[in-house]
């Protein structure tokens, strides 16, 4: 599902150049739940953004969900993000002005040409189905501000699942959640893997890494 080879990612801070990923290699098979752990600032999020096609400015070879990312133009990269991967962020990244169901519908509005397109009604039905799958079918009309942290993260997961991607990339998904909510999210990840998805999660929490099939440590720009 994920094959990263000799990935180098540099950031420039004025005169100084910072190498965050330094010839990093990563292989993740289908239906695997892999956790990447490491201290803050070690480049965990950057690794996810590279693998998810959010950051195209890197060296090395990245093949994700059967696509060589360096070959994709910006439009194809957007289609890749829309169809092949789902993102879950630590701070949920829901649009605060939209009810839960409208947030979940968002990826469907950006379906690329050639992808199956639904009417707004069909899209809403699918979003409600995704919300039901994460146990929030009865809170679809609520604004994010009226949901608990755990509920917001489940809405974000429902949104990531809308286009039925094969890969979920989660960036500290339990970082802002209490123990009970965090465990709920972890259970969801396990269910998704059981259903055939691949999950790559970056975290610094033991409770997440303990359920992963593999745990990789990111140190000095490389995975060990």
């Amino acid at each position: 599902m994920i094959s990263l080879r000799a990935i180098v990612k540099r950031f420039r801070d004025g005169e100084r150049e910072l190498v965050v990923l330094d010839h990093l290699d990563l292989e993740v098979r289908d239906r695997e739940l892999v956790a990447v752990v490491g201290p803050s600032g070690s480049g965990k999020s950057t690794l996810l953004y590279v693998a998810g096609g959010l950051d195209a400015d890197f060296e090395g070879e990245a093949v994700v969900a059967g696509r060589r990312l360096s070959d994709l133009d910006p439009r194809q990269r957007a289609a890749f993000r829309n169809q092949a991967v789902g993102f879950v962020f630590q701070s949920f990244n829901l649009l605060p002005a939209l009810p839960a169901v409208e947030n979940v519908m968002l990826p469907g509005l950006f379906a690329p040409p050639g992808a199956p397109t639904l009417s707004l009604g069909g899209l809403r039905a699918r979003a409600l189905e995704a919300l039901s799958r994460v146990g929030l079918g009865d809170k679809a009309a609520r604004l994010p501000a009226r949901l608990s942290g755990g509920e917001r993260q489940r809405v974000a997961i429902a949104r990531a699942l809308l286009a039925r991607p094969g890969l979920l990339l989660a960036d500290e998904p339990t970082g802002n959640l209490d123990t009970a909510s965090g465990e709920g999210v972890i259970r969801l990840f396990q269910e998704m893997v059981a259903d055939g998805m691949t999950v790559l999660v970056v975290t610094h929490e033991e409770r997440v890494s303990s359920v992963a099939g593999r745990v990789l440590h990111l140190e000095q720009g490389r995975l060990r």
């Binding site: 910006p74 993000r81 169809q83 993102f87 990244n93 950006f110 379906a111 690329p112």
Partner: peptide, 16 residues
Amino acid sequence: TREIAILQALGATAGD
């Protein structure tokens, strides 16, 4: 800016 980045993460192109 952040909302726009979220939309891009969900598949919005620059044109969108």
